[in-house]
């Protein structure tokens, strides 16, 4: 099923016509292509979370229109019409371990598929498969989720979303609070999953390295407005613009900029990932040897 996402001049206002009125999204028009790995970046309060809650109809736009696959969401859309959409869009919220509640890990993972119409047996089978997918050991499955470590709880929660077998996977800072090894494992797992199942992934993150390493499309939000949209190359091409908007370069890019300043060498294109940086330096060194 093809599930493109199109936002058409979407506005969202919290608590309209009260003294607490707050415009969280302003005239957002953007398209997220099917099968893309889209990163959403921006500061705290830039509207990322609000944007994300529009992706499965938790919030409906105050004005404008969102098209996700066949579903059109307008301010008038009824809650009941959104159940179908939620089957196809899985959202992993920030600190998703807060959503665990079942007696056993297995039951908790099977919760969503059961809600979406799978029977006990099918749901349990999917749950086992997803537990393996996120790297949970077999002996943990019958334990209470509250006995696990923080990192394991995170994996259970993520498996619980993957068990919905969504076509669109939305990740809100899925690695916040994990150690570096866990973080890398998790990001690699999402990448593998995306390639295997041809998912559309939308990643909200503060880690520019993750943007450079995994995303092929970037959306930049500031104060509820869309201020840039394009490939990571395009977004990170102008370090000055980034500084103006208080955004950072990935570590490799930052290193490259400093390297250029100190040595006077020029990179052909600004490297954004470690491997890109390494290969460009190798090229440079070999070139230098030949010239010398």
């Amino acid at each position: 099923m093809v599930m493109g996402i199109i936002f058409k001049t979407v506005n969202y206002t919290y608590q309209p016509s009260t003294p607490f009125e707050q415009k969280a999204l302003k005239n957002i028009s953007v398209e997220i292509p099917t099968g893309s790995y889209t990163a959403v970046i921006g500061h705290t309060g830039s509207g990322k979370s609000t944007f994300l809650q529009h992706l499965n109809g938790l919030l409906r736009p105050s004005s404008g229109e969102i098209v996700i696959g066949k579903q059109i969401i307008t301010p008038e859309t009824k809650n009941k019409e959104l159940g179908e959409l939620r089957k196809h869009v899985g959202i992993v919220f920030q600190f998703p371990e807060a959503q665990l509640f079942e007696e056993t890990v297995l039951k908790d993972i099977a919760f969503a598929p059961k809600n979406f119409g799978k029977n006990e047996e099918e749901a349990t089978a999917i749950a086992r498969q997803m537990a393996r997918q996120v790297g949970l050991k077999e002996e943990l499955l019958l334990k209470s989720p509250f006995e696990l470590s923080g990192g394991q709880m995170r994996r259970v929660a993520i498996a619980g979303i993957l068990a919905m077998e969504p076509e669109i996977l939305v990740l809100d800072e899925p690695t916040a609070g994990l150690d570096p090894k866990g973080r890398l494992e998790m990001m690699e797992m999402f990448k593998e999953l995306k390639e295997k199942q041809n998912l559309t992934v939308i990643l909200v993150t503060h880690q520019m390295d993750d943007v450079a390493n995994y995303a092929d499309n970037v959306i930049v939000l500031e104060n509820g407005r869309l201020i840039a949209n394009g490939s990571p190359k395009k977004i990170f091409a102008q370090p000055k613009w980034l500084i103006e908007h208080h955004l950072a370069l990935p570590k490799a890019g930052e290193f490259a900029v400093n390297f250029e300043k100190k040595t006077g060498y020029k990179f052909e294109t600004l490297p954004l990932t470690e491997s890109d940086l390494a290969s460009q330096i190798v090229k440079m060194v070999h070139g230098g040897v030949q010239n010398g």
Binding site: Q53, L58, V89, P96, Q99, F111, A112, G160, M164
Partner: peptide, 27 residues
């Protein structure tokens, strides 16, 4: 936050008969 997370997992709060609504409160 938790309501949003559980809604995304297919819970319908405030819908269905009384038994279903009570069940929806547990998560």
């Amino acid at each position: 936050k938790i309501m949003n997370a559980q809604r995304s997992r297919g819970v319908n709060f405030g819908e269905g008969n009384i038994m279903q609504q009570i069940k929806a409160v547990v998560p």
